[in-house]
């Protein structure tokens, strides 16, 4: 276990408030883009939060909790910023949108499965987010660049955490290797969708990052880890995707139903 497992962060709780305070209204296109990245982080945090008090060892309760908190912090930043475009709040976006209005990638909504499946999902998403944020740091949109600058450091740690576990599980015991291969097999079909460009990102120019531009580096770095782990890059079935257009897998409905249940029971309330 790396020492970093013990690092406890405050979840960047202040960042979102600062963005709201600054009140700099993004264009609708930038906001729509920010919602995508915010939804990825939010839904992943929602999935990871389930592991707290259920992880294989206490150190992993802390580590997965850290990663979930970081992701939630990034989500809050992106959503708080996006919400300004429509005179809304991060909570309006998180709790009062319906399923087709969420534009996260389908991989983040995939069920936790066993620990290996969770690690497989985390491995893929962390490398993707790292490549994305690394470039978004140079966005012509100052707020997106600032959020990315903070996020990239944290995602770098998520990447390291996932890599260590891919190696341990793949090269540990026969059972762990079997499960790691199965986990990657379940998650890999959703990789393709992460790298698809569309009109929105193309229209944003240097404010956004073209997903297709990340693919080469993603393949190279994940490929190197998989090779070290003596694993093949999974091939075959490619999921149809469509998360960016609000199309979700059947696992998504129950996930947001649970997330939104209390807030929706008291629509007038603040907490």
């Amino acid at each position: 276990m790396s020492d970093q497992s013990f690092r406890i962060s405050a979840g960047e709780a202040l960042t979102a408030e600062k963005i709201t305070e600054a009140g700099e209204k993004p264009s609708e296109a930038v906001a729509t883009y920010a919602v995508r990245l915010g939804d990825d982080a939010l839904i992943l945090a929602q999935r990871l939060g389930w592991w707290i008090a259920r992880a294989p060892e206490l150190e992993e309760d802390v580590a997965l909790g850290n990663i979930a908190l970081d992701q939630l912090g990034h989500a809050r930043s992106f959503l708080s910023y996006a919400a300004l475009a429509w005179g809304k709040t991060e909570d309006d976006l998180a709790y009062f949108r319906d399923e087709p209005e969420f534009t996260n990638l389908q991989i983040v909504e995939q069920p936790n499965g066993d620990f290996a499946a969770t690690i497989a999902r985390q491995f893929i998403v962390s490398y993707y987010q790292f490549e994305l944020y690394r470039r978004l740091v140079d966005s012509t949109n100052a707020t997106l660049a600032a959020i990315a600058a903070k996020a990239v450091k944290e995602v770098d740690y998520h990447r390291d955490h996932a890599t260590q576990w891919v190696l341990r599980l793949a090269l540990g015991t026969e059972e762990s290797r079997r499960r790691m291969i199965a986990g990657l097999g379940v998650m890999w079909p959703y990789v393709d969708e992460m790298f698809r460009d569309d009109d929105l990102v193309e229209s944003l120019g240097d404010a956004a990052v073209l997903p297709s531009s990340l693919r080469e580096d993603f393949d190279a770095v994940t490929g190197a880890v998989l090779a070290e782990a003596e694993l093949e890059v999974p091939e075959g079935f490619v999921a149809r995707g469509g998360g960016r257009e609000g199309i979700h897998t059947e696992f998504f409905g129950p996930l947001i139903a649970e997330m939104q249940v209390l807030a929706r029971a008291h629509p007038e309330a603040t907490w």
């Binding site: 709780a13 707290i52 150190e59 802390v62 909790g65 908190l69 997330m259 907490w271």
Partner: peptide
């Protein structure tokens, strides 16, 4: 408290609760 992490009614409360439950794991350690 972990029971409410997935249902916390605002993102700020969710973050605070997650951090709290994680602190308790740290205390145990």
């Amino acid at each position: 408290e972990g029971n409410w992490i997935t249902r916390a009614p605002s993102l700020k409360r969710k973050a605070i609760l997650m951090a709290k439950v994680q602190d308790e794991a740290g205390h145990g350690l």
